[in-house]
Amino acid sequence: MPDTARKPFARHTAAAVSRQSEKRRAVYRRMAWLAAATVLAYLMAHFLVMHAVLGNGPENRLATTMAEAVAIALLPLLILLGYGARTHAWGLWVLLVLCGGMALYNRIAP
């Protein structure tokens, strides 16, 4: 019979330690998820601004500023979407598709 079965206190301590390490792993997972969502959301915002620059020219400050206003409104929403929508990571997938689509669109039709 293992020692932990004969010693309930040791079993309780081992359970606490494993709960702590499980909690730590969950926190690291959340941080990684948030970092990924932030990077993708930021890229999306950047591509939005670049779309205005490429489409209207760098001299058109008004168009660029309007694009910045739209990008800033979307940035936190996209971060929350990427981070919050966790079932099958669909939030991150949506961001990835949006980013890719925007990058392609900027490349093909500036």
Partner: peptide, 24 residues
């Protein structure tokens, strides 16, 4: 917003052909 979303590409491949002009 311009401080965190600069209106120029990060990668050389995205550079436009026209040089940036001073905005009026």
């Amino acid at each position: 917003a311009r401080g965190i979303l600069p209106p120029h590409p990060f990668l050389p491949a995205q550079q436009t052909e026209a040089p940036p002009a001073a905005a009026a």
